[in-house]
Design a protein around this nucleic acid. Structure first.
Lengths: 350, 350
DNA sequence: GTGAAAGCGCTAACAA
DNA sequence: TTGTTAGCGCTTTCAC
């Protein structure tokens, strides 16, 4: 790869203006798709842009604009660690972005409650807010309020659980079907070849992410591990108390449970039950989301593996995308793809 | 989290100048640690900076400076896919960075050859280059040439394999000991409880990354899977032809090989041998780096898992760090930590 | 040692 | 419909 030593400084709007024989203001209007330019002039300018291979300097633009980006995250209420870590990442990134003219804030909305979510989305002031990242269920009312936001020029991304039927600008999160498949493959291989039962602990079938994981899980279990019997999902609604109440009876009624897939945010309840159970019979367990609690469970051998998504990456990616969309700038798809992380005790971050 | 609606615009150097009762130029001199300011004045300015909680606007700074960052990657010669993907990522990022005043280039240096590497580092023109990312062996001559570069004001990061004895500014890559541990845990669990032999295919014990992986691998094998016998490393020097020559005899001399850990860039040679071997006896295999070849091997069930590091992340992280160091700006450690990725067939990227 | 002033690439208010 | 012009926050001559 040869180095261009002769600093071939890139074309600026001045060059465009000169070549197209118009003023800076006109170039600016064309660049930002503002009205009030004759079709013919637009063509001329675009031609010059193309000819010179112009790319706008985003830093200079945002400096001149003095604009402040205002992004809002809408998260489910609840105190599980995954939500806490998202919250922490938002706060932290917010600090780091202070000197980049970007303000982040978040709202908590009752979990698994489409009405409350639609209301919260409806309450967003599109004059003040440039982008919204939504982590919540997909229902018609939610779709409608998203459509309304978008029609007011607000960028919308779905977070963690997709809302594909809406016209959100982007989805930021893992492929949850693949995540379920991954959990199944790992659990199947770890459990071995004995005939036994598998328990799936989920949150709510209203949540698209939970549903998709279950789908992928069942697919691989049926295909690669037909000797394992997957029982119906136990819906724990991500509530530790509820899980602590429901789980023991299911476990004792089904003696042969050799594996558990904790596919949602039910780790706390699950761990409470496990700690109260004689260790000798501990089933193989695959859980979701790397958090202090699940790290500890990995370290102590209570969990065998954890499927995760990087909450820092989720938040940074959401912000980058909202900023890019607000500026009508392209995004780097590869960088924004959220990985399905697998953690064993050995590859946990320090 | 409450929203600051009253756009509390951040302090600028103008504010500093006013509060410290000096001119813009003086503030700038202090900010950039340039000489020619009385100690007393420096104190006054720093006090104001502290009082106002000033953070410099990097975008504005680089705009004013009109500076072009010039970063060079030094990679081992060789055509293995991991190197190719690093190369691709560098080229691609280079395109994306054109309008951010950042130029990337790379040099290839004979692999496992400290003399050639030291020479290449020595040949860097510190007038032209702002930062160098080095992927290569750690030896005294390499250390010395790094020290020389650094004393000329060039930022140096080590890439993929650390060079901790040098005073490089940062290491960009995974914890290779942990990667080896992870491979061992996965291989041990997949192989099961039968007594059998494990083969480790490595590149060169001169390479710190290869060495560290072997270390971590042995540690976990000894601790958690004492029934598995780990044979001495086979040094394939990442050369497909060499591996194709050496491996079959080792395999046939050791009939009970139930698992292989391909810990370096020897996948191509290994796969050639596997394809020429009756499928029935295929051992469980854990390899390194997700590439087209290893993806295919995962898909076809030839590889059981792949330990990887994201080459895009490696390159982006190296650039972000070199830029931050060049600007004396802080870096976000969490974002720069390179994960040890585990891939099964199920969680491969599309 | 210090300060005044021009300008980086872009935007936006105001004129024409 | 188009152009002129004054900055955004910072760096950098050049003059004092």
């Amino acid at each position: 790869m040869t180095q261009d030593r002769n600093t071939p400084s890139l074309p600026t709007i001045n060059d465009i203006a000169r070549v197209a024989q118009v003023s800076l203001a006109t170039v600016d209007r064309v660049l930002n798709a503002r009205p009030g330019v004759r079709e013919k002039t637009v063509k001329k300018v675009n031609q010059a842009i193309e000819d010179l291979g112009y790319v706008r300097d985003a830093a200079a633009a945002s400096l001149a604009r003095g604009r402040i980006y205002n992004f809002v995250f809408i998260l489910p209420a609840g105190s599980n660690e995954f939500l806490t870590s998202l919250e922490t990442e938002i706060k932290q990134l917010s600090k780091g972005l202070r000197h980049e003219r970007t303000r982040l804030s978040f709202i908590r909305v009752a979990a698994f409650d489409p009405v409350a979510l639609a209301e919260a989305i409806g309450a967003i002031d599109s004059q003040e807010v440039d982008g919204v990242a939504i982590f919540g269920p997909e229902t018609p009312s939610v779709r409608d309020s998203i459509a309304h936001l978008k029609s007011n020029g607000v960028t919308v991304v779905s977070l963690v659980a997709d809302i594909p039927s809406s016209d959100r600008d982007h989805y930021v999160g893992v492929d949850n079907i693949a995540a379920g498949r991954t959990a199944a493959q790992l659990l199947g291989r770890f459990v071995g070849s004995a005939n036994c039962k598998i328990l799936v602990l989920t949150g709510s079938m209203l949540a698209r992410d939970h549903l998709e994981r279950r789908l992928g899980f069942d697919e691989i279990m049926a295909r690669d591990f037909p000797h394992l019997e997957v029982m119906p999902s136990l819906e724990g609604r991500d509530d530790p108390d509820l899980i602590e109440k429901l789980l023991p009876s299911v476990m004792s009624e089904n003696k042969g449970v050799a594996g558990i897939y904790s596919s949602a945010a039910g780790n706390e309840g699950l761990l409470r039950v496990l700690r109260a159970t004689p260790r000798i019979s501990k089933p193989t367990i695959i859980a979701h989301e790397l958090t202090p609690l699940s790290c500890e469970a990995l370290n102590h051998g209570l969990f065998d593996a954890v499927i995760s998504q990087d909450s820092g990456h989720l938040v940074r990616s959401a912000v980058r995308i909202m900023r890019a969309k607000s500026d009508r700038m392209p995004i780097n798809i590869a960088q924004e793809r959220i990985r399905i992380d697998i953690y064993l005790k050995e590859n946990m971050p320090p």
